[in-house]
Write a protein that binds this DNA or RNA. Structure first.
Lengths: 189, 189
DNA sequence: AGGTGGATAGAACGGTCTGTCTATCGGCGT
DNA sequence: ACGCCGATAGACAGACCGTTCTATCCACCT
């Protein structure tokens, strides 16, 4: 009963599974990673996966859901000490910049998931995207720009483009470049 | 001997295969489409695929290569009547706008391929991307902007972002929005 | 008319995928 | 000390994957 996420040294199979799956999905893609590999690299038994999640599909959804929640939490934590709304906006780029090398420059994982499953409406992906949009609008209102909604759309387009470029070029440079573009777009607005 | 691509009414199995594969790859993704489905929808015999291409992998590369050549040809044709270099640049967005609904708003197919095969260096994808970059630089030089290279990078980032947004939202609006952003970026430069 | 070669239909093979099943192990509470 | 329950190891089933093979067919050329 008290087994779930209690001792930090020994985590549950469900947790280890989710972490390993997340790393593999991010690096190689979701369709390219089979459950056999997840099981082998996590050291978890096959049956544990199916008792904990029920299917690979459910594990994928748990992965995307955790991605959304964790990304939001990281941003919230990172902007905690900041006052300037513009600095908070640029934090999106700073976080992407920091995680890009760790993720082998695979770009936006939400976009990757949407690419791999074109005809599914993936809830966490849409939710994350809407959160990003509304957060940008809010911050741009605080910054006192003339057209918060339009400018937010600009920032988000730049954000998407910088992550796409990072994936193409296997480099963090496009994200740095996008950060500058975003800063300039806010200044101009 | 004279069988290859002679009569326009009845095309060769290789051609029908490539066309059907292209449509399916674009709509559902490359990994998601098996050879069985390509064969069924094209009405081509199984053996014909392997005598013509040798493997699914080779068919995929032929698809990507044809994508690159055709996209360049379409752009060249579209800008033939144009003089203004800025108009030529915006033609990239116009073409994307026109093809987006036909492709079910699946965004940039080069990005999709790069997403599905993260650790392969796909030649046509890199070539297409470099062609886009150098073409933009050339046109921006003609337009007399101060920093052609930097501005070209901006345009390409906006282009990438607009296609990514189109995929997320299943809409052509982000491409229209990106077109405006690109026009503004050129004006400002 | 006869033959040649490309296209076709479809069976079959080996491999991999997700998912299920059985059996054993080990820690923890009573 | 016993029993329970989660975790483990691994075989297994069924579907699908790409690929090869065999055999038939048909259009075209001499």
């Amino acid at each position: 009963m008290r087994s779930t996420a209690e001792t930090p040294t020994k985590r549950s199979p469900a947790e280890r599974l989710l972490e390993t799956a997340g790393e593999l999905f991010a690096e190689y893609g979701i369709r390219a990673v089979g459950v056999d590999r997840i099981l082998a690299e996590s050291g978890v038994a096959r049956a544990s996966l199916y008792t904990a999640y029920g299917s690979k599909d459910a594990l994928v959804h748990a992965y995307l859901d955790g991605l959304d929640r964790r990304d939001r939490a990281r941003w919230n934590e990172a902007v905690e000490a900041l006052d300037d709304p513009v600095a908070k906006i640029l934090t999106f780029f700073d976080l992407a910049l920091a995680s890009a090398p760790r993720k082998n420059f695979r770009g936006c994982q939400y976009a990757n998931a949407a690419t791999e499953f074109p005809q599914e409406r993936i809830e966490p992906v849409l939710a994350h995207r809407e959160w990003l949009r509304s957060t940008l609008v809010e911050l741009l209102e605080q910054a006192g720009v003339a057209d918060p909604k339009g400018t937010a759309e600009q920032i988000r387009l730049i954000y998407d483009g910088s992550l796409a470029g990072s994936k193409f070029e296997h480099s963090a440079d496009p994200i740095r470049f996008g950060r500058e573009m975003a800063a300039a777009a806010i200044s101009a607005a």
